[in-house]
């Protein structure tokens, strides 16, 4: 130790412990008012759907589709809420987190502080990706938990069971497993969105550019999918697989759609991570 001191700079520690960095990032993400606001918003999604279904159920017969399937069948609510939110709200939240992670920090002048500390550039990407992961996971968790609670309390449950779209019934335990699967799958899709958003975030200093890019991407994907002449494009679009979330409500559980969309998400994740790292290793801060 003393010898190390004597040899001077060569004995320097290479970086702060990674766990400490991740902890700092976690605190930063969860202290941010925007994150809290989004989580509250996500807590409201199942409540609003549940209340709406309960009212509509009293007024008339059940509606069609996934929301209709919630009526009297509360354990479907978390899955329906996740599917509805995945269309726009969840990607928006993740894009926001990714926008703040690099572009926002750069614009606020706080990225310099971290780089000078120093946080190595690769570690910085890991740290920031972790922050986005936290937001994605927290958002789906809030929807899933509030969805289950609200489903049981507001909508009521089908004798403690979940009625699948296929007309079979699942016990409470298996139903919880299905909700957990939906949440995990949704988080996976969101991580792909987050990785791409982080890549955009690493390329710009304007957080709004990231939001616009992600929302634009989601909306344009939807439009492209609706054009029959461009059907060849569909297998490349992340959003193509987003209807697979409803698969957890089928019985026997079909894994094809969930698996394929997860693999596609993984590819997007890898592309996003590669671009982010390549860019951040050289980015002027």
């Amino acid at each position: 130790m003393t010898a190390a001191t004597a040899t001077g700079p060569a004995a320097t520690v290479r970086g702060a412990p990674l766990g400490r960095l991740l902890g700092a990032e976690l605190r930063w993400v969860l202290r941010r008012p925007r994150t809290i606001a989004f989580l509250v918003l996500f807590a409201l999604v199942p409540v609003v759907i549940g209340a709406g279904v309960a009212i509509a159920d009293r007024a008339g017969g059940p509606g069609r589709g996934l929301i209709g399937a919630v009526a009297g069948n509360g354990l479907v609510l978390p899955v329906a809420a996740l599917t509805v939110s995945l269309a726009l709200l969840l990607p928006l939240a993740v894009a926001m987190a990714a926008a703040d992670a690099l572009a926002g920090e750069s614009a606020a002048g706080t990225l310099r502080g971290l780089l000078v500390a120093p946080v190595g550039r690769l570690r910085l990407v890991v740290m920031k990706a972790f922050g986005v992961l936290v937001v994605a996971a927290a958002a789906t968790l809030v929807i899933a938990v509030l969805g289950v609670l609200c489903g049981l309390v507001v909508v009521g449950w089908a004798e403690g069971q979940m009625v699948t779209l296929s007309g079979t019934t699942l016990g409470f335990g298996e139903a919880m497993g299905r909700v957990a699967l939906a949440a995990a799958w949704t988080t996976g899709q969101l991580l792909a969105v987050g990785a791409v958003a982080l890549a955009v975030s690493s390329l710009t200093e304007h957080p709004l550019v990231v939001l616009a890019a992600v929302l634009g991407g989601v909306i344009v994907s939807g439009v492209l999918a609706a054009i029959p002449a461009l059907s060849w494009l569909q297998p490349y679009l992340l959003t193509t697989g987003w209807s697979a979330g409803a698969d957890v409500l089928r019985d026997p559980l079909p894994l094809d759609g969930l698996g394929e969309s997860t693999l596609r998400a993984l590819c997007y994740l890898v592309v996003g991570a590669g671009v982010t790292v390549a860019r951040m290793l050289r980015r002027d801060a």
Binding site: G272, A273, G274
Partner: peptide
């Protein structure tokens, strides 16, 4: 590490694109 980092990261990104293509076709 930084010298090799970028080519590796770029290669990873390209691998992701290739994977996407393999999935789509």
């Amino acid at each position: 590490m930084r010298r090799f980092g970028r080519p590796v990261a770029a290669a990873v990104a390209v691998a992701g694109l290739v994977g996407l293509g393999l999935l789509a076709v």
